[in-house]
Nucleic acid binder design. Structure first.
Length: 215
DNA sequence: ATCCCGAGGG
DNA sequence: CCCTCTGGAT
């Protein structure tokens, strides 16, 4: 039977990248509280740094109610290596307080509630939904997903929200959960912003960027 | 120098 | 659309 272009893309990237190994750095955070906080901290830093600081953070503040009562200075010192520590410390404490007050101490499992938490945007909310609740409600669009999608011609938009709606139209819902991880890995290893390795790319034959490098 | 599995604000 | 927030890795 004939595969559609999006199916071909997913199929080939799946063979190339083992998501069960590389995607779930947050798999060892087993409750929604830890997943939420670790995901907020992961903005603009590496998972190694997040793993380093969360070790101390979660042993000092084991539950969301502990973090809700934490002092800003203690939290800032612990998470300092992740960068943006002032905003992140403020956000994770305020988010914890909001979870305690507005959600009875349970991290919410709906997109519209999650994005109201300070420090939580669509991207973070999507990851929390995925990892903490196994709910797929869309495709998290970051700079990698955006660049790869545009080069492949899966969207002509540049705003993340519009790209997401294009992608959710193009890919069937059972593929949504893996698009983010697959495209991020591909975007970092092959389809890089500068000097993409098109000659080593398994999608080169169906990618319009190869013949029209314009981005 | 440049980039990171962003969010919030103007 | 733009800018700012920040440290660490390469």
């Amino acid at each position: 039977m004939e595969l559609s272009q999006p199916e071909i893309i997913v199929k080939r990237l799946r063979i190339l990248y083992d998501l069960s190994k590389s995607r779930d750095e947050f798999l060892h955070f087993n409750n929604p509280y830890e997943i939420l906080i670790a995901t907020i901290l992961s903005a603009q830093t590496t998972d190694k740094t997040v793993n380093l600081v969360t070790k101390e953070l979660f042993s000092r503040f084991p539950s969301v109610s502990d973090l809700a009562k934490a002092g800003i200075g203690d939290v800032e010192r612990i998470i300092h290596p992740t960068g943006f520590f002032h905003a992140k410390a403020r956000n994770i404490i305020a988010a914890s307080q909001m979870v305690v007050k507005d959600f009875g101490g349970e991290v919410p499992d709906r997109m519209e509630d999650l994005v109201r938490l300070p420090g939580v945007g669509r991207k973070t909310a999507n990851i929390v939904l995925n990892h903490a609740f196994s709910k797929i409600e869309g495709i998290a669009v970051d700079t990698h997903v955006r660049r790869v999608s545009m080069r492949l011609g899966l969207t002509n938009q540049s705003e993340p929200d519009k790209i997401e709606s294009d992608l959710t139209r193009v890919f069937s819902p059972d593929m949504w959960g893996e698009i983010n991880g697959l495209f991020i890995l591909h975007g970092r290893r092959i389809c890089t912003a500068r000097k993409p390795a098109c000659m080593a790319c398994v999608l080169a034959d169906i990618c319009r960027f190869v013949s029209n490098p314009s981005d």
